[in-house]
């Protein structure tokens, strides 16, 4: 066991020395791998943020009923009673047109414009908040309410969230396809790097085989080289994505709080970081393994 660990330690040290010896080539390779990995990673982060926003919006579906301008207080009270008795409704809130105008002035800074209009153009409205798992019942309520005499327009706020979800599913499929393609690219880059390393070390491999080195002994430093290259490339991708998220947060400023209550965009957590490190390492190792397995056969003696 001690010997086994020592041999692996030596192979890893050898791989690190090789990476350091060809510093510029190593940096360029790592940048190529990092950028290749950062593309699907960045897309994944964007989708995660949009997904979090849409889930937050869809968690409590809301139905808004805009009343006709001729609806009076009696109509409103009767409608409120019907809405409150509906099983899909968790909360019912009546917003008068005066309150709606006040909210608009406050939130959008439109006080001057409203004064020029002379009269309040907004309608009275009911906002019905549904139970999280009752989106379909709320949709049924929307269809009924749209036919009520004093309802001008009924709008269910989950429709767009569902559309976003559909777009997200397409986006996730794109990330998977892009990830697969760029994963193959990482394997190909590592394959080629290791091929060049093998050619550079041809004499050493031949002599080592002649004096008793097993294929495992020869293969080991190359596998570490590929795995380390993948891991470091993954680290660069991680750094690039973090930099991009920070830059985006600064650019978007206050708008971020609309997407995320915490005021920060979602980024890579510990599980995602660990998965990225593991995957990048594994792909680098795979590229190296394929390369060494293919090229070692050409060396004599068998």
């Amino acid at each position: 066991m001690k010997n086994w660990l020592r041999e692996h330690g030596l192979a890893m040290r050898d791989a690190l020395v090789r990476l350091g010896r060809h510093f510029v080539a190593t940096i360029l390779n790592l940048l190529v791998i990092g950028i290749a990995l950062s593309l699907p990673l960045a897309l994944y982060i964007v989708l995660e943020n949009v997904s979090a926003f849409s889930q937050q919006a869809a968690a409590e579906p809301q139905l808004t009923l805009f009343l006709r301008s001729d609806a009076d207080q009696g109509d409103a009270q009767s409608m409120e009673a019907r809405l409150k008795s509906h099983p899909a409704a968790a909360r019912v809130q009546f917003i008068t047109k005066d309150r709606a105008l006040a909210n608009l002035e406050k939130s959008a800074g439109l006080s001057g414009v409203v004064e020029e209009l002379g009269s309040n153009p907004l309608p009275d409205a009911f906002v019905v908040t549904g139970h999280p798992d009752q989106a379909e019942a709320l949709e049924s309520l929307r269809a009924d309410a749209a036919k009520w005499a004093k309802v001008d327009h009924a709008q269910l706020d989950t429709v767009w969230a569902r559309q976003v979800e559909a777009a997200l599913r397409a986006g996730r499929a794109t990330v998977a396809a892009l990830g697969l393609l760029l994963g193959i690219a990482l394997v190909a880059i590592t394959f080629n790097t290791i091929r060049l390393q093998i050619l550079n070390r041809r004499e050493e491999i031949e002599v080592s085989k002649l004096i008793g080195a097993t294929n495992g002994f020869i293969r080991r430093p190359f596998l570490y080289l590929g795995a380390l290259q993948g891991l470091m490339g993954g680290g660069i991708a991680w750094g690039l994505v973090l930099l991009a998220v920070n830059a985006l947060e600064r650019e978007l400023g206050v708008a971020v709080s609309l997407v995320s209550p915490s005021g920060h965009l979602a980024t890579l957590g510990l599980p995602e970081t660990a998965a990225l490190a593991g995957l990048a390492t594994m792909l680098g190792w795979l590229g190296a393994w394929l390369s060494v397995s293919l090229h070692l056969r050409r060396f004599e003696p068998a």
Binding site: L210, I211, G212
Partner: peptide, 30 residues
């Protein structure tokens, strides 16, 4: 076969030394 070769000592006409390593590392290789 590699384990058999480890029990032999091989001397080559063209030496087969590794010129990117010093004498110590060459001799230490087996």
């Amino acid at each position: 076969l590699p384990f058999l070769r480890r029990r032999l000592g091989l001397v080559f006409q063209d030496h087969k030394l590794l010129f990117d390593r010093n004498v110590y590392d060459n001799v230490a290789l087996p």
